[in-house]
Amino acid sequence: MERSKKKLQLWKRAAFHFLLCFIMGFFTGFIPTSDKSWTFFGNVVASTQSELSMQPLEISSYHTLNRSLLDGTHRAVLMRSNESLQTGPSEQEQAEEPGTDKLSSRRLVIIVTPTSERNHLREVLLMRLANTLKLVPPPLLWMVVEQQSDSSQVSEILRKSGVMYRHVVFKENITDLEMEMDHQRNVALNHIEHHRLSGIVHFAGLDNVYDLSFFNEIRATEVFGTWPMAILSANRERVIIEGPVCDSSQVIGWHLKKQKNHTADTTKSPLHISSFAFNSSILWDPERWGRPSSIQDTSQKTMKFVEKEVLEEETEVKGIPAQGCSMILLWNLLIPTKHPTPPHASVASR
């Protein structure tokens, strides 16, 4: 009898221990851990564990208003993904086929084209550029900027082109054509920044003509790329060639049009707007490139920022094509349209 009582006591104690352990286990379940070495539990447990650890990041409220918070959280999630990637089998699989299909690793090219109603050749030139871009192997995204208007000519031309494009419109009325162009480019850059599009950005004016290999070349751009371009003007003798002077793909200097008025004009970049390309991530992920993130505030001056960066960070600027950037792949036909003729130059008479 006593023995059984003792035994009961023993069992009670054991049960108490089990219960204690159970509760302990119960609560450890709620502690977010990132410890991946708990292999004892097998795969399933490991996955739930990491999942659990995500939760605090995940549940935090997402406001569109609070961009910084959003971005912060987002990045946190990304970091985690890399971590979990290392444990998953996917990495092995990826390593097994390291771009077996070279096509699949082609970079996105983002072509930004500002268009102004004041350019009387706008529709025709847009059509010509569309024909060229249609031939560029994908992925390519064409961003065409235009002032909001009732006219649907630009949309119609774009629509018929078959190119993947985004037609971005803005409302502001800007009198100075150059400033409007800069504003249009900024509008496009803001779009890229807002959407965090990742690719190589190039500003293609309507009066540019490209050799198709140009688009292959700029895909090689890591941070900044630059190349010489020919500027042709009607009825002139001289052909102006502007751009970098390179040793192999290393930029060692610039061949630029001399500034007429003052040599030390810092407000205007001497570089032609179409003579460089850059990685779009410098717009929305400046830290990645070791830059202060403060440019976010000056989104109105995004253009200036990019131009400044190209000139300042010359070590990161790559000459294109890689063989001493000696090949002209881009021609620019100078057609200034300053004169105040009636604005509605409709191409097709309907």
Partner: peptide, 21 residues
Amino acid sequence: SKFPPGWIIDPPLEITVPAKR
């Protein structure tokens, strides 16, 4: 008007703005 044959720049262009670094 003259243009570089084949649009290949040879000899290299002269440097009018030096590379800063």
